[in-house]
């Protein structure tokens, strides 16, 4: 096995181009499990932990550029005020040791339907930055997830950053699991209000082959809020609105039965999370908290 340790972005991109089958490794919290259990034997490991650019985040024209190698612990400590949805999701990942090492970039690389950052990224309209020696492209998160543990990155590309414009309204992330720590979600849901453009965004986790938005639920809710003048008045939500929204969220999912839970339980828990989290974000919005 070869172990490549590029120390600059350019070197890393050249390495990936020369070894398209090289397995990138950031925090290793997915890769090392596969190696320890002999589930994969890549010819080449491409260590990306020595590339300063990947380990940084910064502001870029009102949006945040989050390097692929920033740990969950740092997202929680440094970005909770600007990206509360992603920070909430990050808090639910594994344990302190896992959060110290695991990264949003690695979560995207693994592209598991159960990855906890995905619902929050979808609800925030995040864009994924992919780079190769031939250039850089930015994909909306909706186009990034292509199948179970598959994403739109090419073999010569690396996931280098996530670009997120902090949603102008409140955000929530919820996940269902068997205990309060160290669990892969049985189902997960994230919501963000975008009052600046009178829109709602959602993200569903662990309840379809890929993380996905509940687009019909978003459109329906935004229209209902508009029709009732609620974006301006910040008044109480009409009776039954949250329930109808929750039904539409569940309708957007296509879960399976597996060891962690049945499809029916996933649909039920999703609709409960959708209903409750809408109540929470609306309370925050009504009380004037922007997030």
């Amino acid at each position: 096995m070869e172990f490549l340790t590029p120390t600059s972005m350019q070197e890393a991109l050249e390495a990936k181009s020369a070894h398209p089958d090289a397995k990138p490794i950031l925090g290793g919290t997915d890769v090392m499990v596969e190696l320890n259990f002999d589930r994969c034997r890549p010819a080449t490991l491409l260590d990306l932990t020595r590339i300063p650019e990947l380990a940084e985040w910064g502001r870029d024209n009102g949006s945040i550029k989050l390097g692929a190698g920033v740990s969950y612990t740092r997202v929680i400590a440094e970005l909770a005020d600007q990206l509360p949805g992603l920070a909430m999701a990050s808090r639910t990942v594994g344990s302190p040791q896992i959060r110290n090492r695991g990264t949003v970039g690695g979560n995207l690389g693994a592209a598991s339907p159960a990855g906890d950052s995905h619902p929050a990224l979808l609800a925030a309209d995040a864009e994924i930055e992919l780079r190769s020696v031939n250039g850089l492209r930015r994909l909306p998160a909706t186009e990034f997830y292509t199948g179970v543990k598959r994403h739109a990155g090419r073999d010569d590309e690396l996931i280098t950053a996530v670009h997120i414009t902090p949603p102008s309204g409140p955000q929530q992330f919820c996940k269902i699991g068997t205990r309060n720590a160290m669990v892969i979600s049985v189902s997960a849901f994230s919501i963000a209000l975008h009052p600046d453009r009178s829109e709602v965004r959602t993200g569903i986790g662990s309840a379809a082959p890929t993380p996905r938005r509940a687009v019909d639920a978003e459109t329906w809710l935004a229209a209902a809020l508009e029709a009732n003048g609620l974006w301006e008045s910040r008044g109480a939500l009409p009776e039954g609105l949250a329930r109808e929204f929750a039904g539409l969220v569940a309708a957007a999912a296509s879960p399976i039965d597996d060891v962690r839970g049945t499809a029916a339980y996933r649909l039920h828990s999703l609709s409960v999370m959708a209903r409750r989290s809408l109540g929470w974000v609306w309370n925050d919005y009504a009380s004037g908290q922007e997030h």
Partner: peptide
């Protein structure tokens, strides 16, 4: 596999599961 924490060490001052760090890292 990162589940038990019995291998916790400090790596550059950060507590991590040593079983999930590649030696080369």
């Amino acid at each position: 596999q990162g589940e038990c924490g019995s291998c916790t060490v400090y790596l550059d001052g950060v507590a991590v599961c040593a079983c999930l760090v590649a030696a080369g890292q």
